[in-house]
Nucleic acid binder design. Structure first.
Lengths: 143, 143
DNA sequence: GCCATAATCAACTGTATGGTTGATTATCAA
DNA sequence: TTGATAATCAACCATACAGTTGATTATGGC
């Protein structure tokens, strides 16, 4: 949760920019958003995801690849099956961007962050989600 | 800030879906994000915005039209000039979506909201931003 | 080994998008 | 009235993208 403490950081890396392109354009498709929704809380196989849609399995596979490239989904292949897992880290980065560029929302968000700092200093640091590693806002960047 | 209190609302309208398509795909372009950044805090003419970029004014005008269609920018034309103003409402809707579908971040967000409710009940209600009406999470929807 | 299954790869199609240049509209100033 | 300016419209081009169908790879069960 360190990123929450750096909300006022206005540095602008070209790296982040490229990542934001991928994340926002990944989120711009309703099918991909539906895939993310289905992956929330449980991991699924490609075929399990595809069963929910009318388009071909190949098309769904391509959508998943887009989500993987954006860092929103991790795919772990064991044998012939490929298990898909949500990674909320880049989404948090996107949310930070949304809140950062707008002074109004930044004020609100900063205020909220300070409030959390004050009344719940213990909870904000450790093991926020059971059974799954906490999403790392800047981590797992490949290439 | 009422929308923050309804984060757990899982209703899914096709209307919102179309809006999210437009908002996220508008945000997926680095030039459009740069335009929004420049519009944060001050209104600008199309030509003033275009001066900051190397692409043609026509291209910038098209980018602005995309932002207008997504509801992120309001354009008020007086005479031959056209003043562009940021509207953060749809961005808040997008942020809500980002936080809603992920249980983890929803927990964090709800916790923050409760914290705000507890320690700053007065500040959260009035005049959050000087010189400009506060963005309305659901408001200003045209058509 | 044999075959069904899970998933990706490959090639192709139609459409959307981002950019260009050139023309057009409308307004302001002289 | 004439001309410069602000902005959009229009046509065009290249590329990217979402979808299809068909082939391929690799694994698991019998």
């Amino acid at each position: 949760m360190r990123a929450q403490l750096r909300l006022a950081d206005q540095t602008h890396r070209a790296d982040d920019d490229a990542r934001l392109n991928e994340v926002f354009s990944a989120l711009a498709d309703p099918i991909r958003r539906a895939i993310l929704r289905r992956l929330d809380g449980r991991d699924l196989l490609v075929s399990e995801i595809a069963a929910a849609f009318t388009i071909s399995l190949q098309a769904v596979s391509k959508h998943i690849q887009v989500l993987v490239r954006a860092g929103l989904v991790n795919q772990e292949r064991t044998g012939r099956i490929s298990r898909c897992r949500l990674d909320a880290g880049p989404i948090f980065e996107a949310a930070v961007w949304l809140n950062r560029y707008s002074k109004y929302w930044q004020e609100q968000f900063d205020l909220l962050a300070v409030a959390l700092e004050d009344i719940a200093p213990a909870r904000k640091r450790k093991s926020p989600r059971a059974g799954r590693p906490a999403p790392r806002p800047g981590g797992d960047r490949r290439k």
